[in-house]
Amino acid sequence: MFEGFTRRRIATSGAEINLVVGGDGPPLLLLHGFPQSHVMWHKVAGALAERFTVVAPDLRGYGDSEKVATAEDHSSYSKREMARDQVEVMRILGFERFQLVGHDRGGRVAHRMAVDHADRVKRLAVLDIVPTLTTFESVDQQLASAYYHWFFLIQPHPLPEHMIGLDPEFYLRRKTNMWGVGTAHFTAEAMAEYIRCFKNPSAIHAMCEDYRAAATIDLEHDRADRAAGVKVRCPLLALWGGRATMDRSFDVLATWRDVALDVQGQAIDCGHYIPEERPEEFTAALLDFLEP
Rank of each mutant, 00 (worst) to 15 (best):
E66K: 06
D210C: 10
S202R: 15
G33C: 01
C208T: 02
H162R: 15
D269H: 01
P275G: 05
F95W: 08
A125G: 04
L127N: 01
N200V: 06
I268D: 04
V115C: 15
T183I: 03
M163K: 05
G265V: 06
L286T: 02
Q86A: 10
L239Y: 03
A110R: 08
G14P: 00
F52M: 04
P201K: 01
D269P: 03
F2A: 05
L253M: 07
L153M: 13
Y147M: 15
V87L: 13
A83C: 11
D167F: 07
R226A: 15
A267E: 09
I10F: 08
L287W: 02
T134W: 04
I268M: 13
G106E: 09
C208M: 05
D210P: 09
R60A: 12
V232H: 02
V130L: 01
T187W: 11
W179L: 14
A227L: 12
L28H: 05
D128V: 00
L236T: 14
R196C: 02
A284R: 14
R91F: 06
V126R: 07
R51E: 11
E3T: 13
L28C: 07
V126S: 02
V230D: 01
G4Y: 02
H185R: 13
R97E: 15
D85N: 12
S249E: 09
P168H: 04
L29C: 08
H205T: 06
R80G: 12
A244R: 05
T70P: 00
E81Y: 11
G4K: 00
V54T: 06
P275K: 01
N18C: 10
M178C: 10
A47G: 12
M163D: 10
A47L: 10
E291I: 08
K67Q: 12
L19N: 09
A144Y: 13
M191D: 12
L124V: 07
A214S: 15
G271A: 09
Y171G: 07
V68D: 09
D258R: 12
D128E: 06
